[in-house]
Design a protein around this nucleic acid. Structure first.
Lengths: 149, 149
DNA sequence: CTTGTTAAAATGTATATACAAGTAACCTTG
DNA sequence: CAAGGTTACTTGTATATACATTTTAACAAG
């Protein structure tokens, strides 16, 4: 631990590392939304899936995962829980492998009910990340998607 | 799901939500570092803890958690695993409740060995998030810390 | 039509994460 | 110094996350 080279290196990582900061912000900001959504029995990860399904109507797991940069297995478990809660339902499909899903009436209603909590959390998040946060995040997502394809 | 108000709302969340983007970026960027660190048997979450301990010398769990916006229970489990691997060791303390820890020689060496992988991942992360990413993240962290105190 | 390949998703396993509750040590105060 | 409160962490539990493997179905070649 007294090695000077190691110390320099450690300090460099500490002052420059992107992922440390990104992860800390993710935890803090996710907590803001989770706190706001908790009274509804909804988590931010689940809200994201409801939104994704709401936008496209018929959601294909692989597509949702590509959009959210989420592993299929992670989505699989969450969809399972959300089906059990009656928020999502699987749509029959010609391809026997596919498991496309959509919002149920209950899931749609929950999303509507969550709007005020979302707005409140969104405001707080914006005040912490700064006014350009959405710009920054959108640009980053575009680059990420360009790099992934 | 056919309710027009709900549809409008859903689209608004989809196009504006900060946390969806932050979480997706966090997953994608964490993966870049985890992939780079995997050959060393080290994860990004663990690297962060090694760095935190390396910077302060004697790390107090509560301080590390405050700095990383991490729950104490999360840190507790990870420190346990890292002690088992011989990367961290607990320092005796006058206060019987405290469990301050520091890097072992092995932990310090691992951190040094991880530097090239970190650099590579850091480059890729910067190319995705953009040149101003560190500025943005630093400013956000400052605001977050100001808001938390 | 069977056999190898690809594709879509589910399942096994380990770590990450946080909330709630518990434990043990310290501190205050009467 | 004993009772009550605070502090520092740990443990119980549930969800989040990803990698590796498995399962099932579609497809393609012979």
């Amino acid at each position: 631990m007294k090695d000077a080279k190691t110390t320099r290196l450690t300090k460099r990582i500490a002052t420059e590392c992107i992922v440390v900061r990104l992860r800390a912000l993710n935890r803090a900001v996710s907590k803001i939304y989770d706190d706001a959504l908790r009274p509804l029995g909804l988590r931010v990860s689940q809200m994201n899936i409801l939104v994704a399904a709401g936008v496209v109507g018929e959601a294909r797991p692989a597509d949702v995962c590509a959009a959210l940069h989420l592993d299929l297995s992670t989505l699989s478990r969450n969809v399972e829980r959300m089906k059990a809660k009656g928020w999502l339902e699987v749509i029959p499909d010609d391809d026997g492998r596919a498991q496309p899903f959509r919002l149920t009436r209950k899931g749609s209603a929950l999303l509507s009910d969550a709007a005020p909590a979302w707005s409140k959390a969104q405001c707080r998040a914006k005040s912490i990340l700064g006014g350009q946060s959405l710009d920054f995040l959108d640009r980053a997502m575009k680059r990420l998607n360009a790099a992934s394809s």
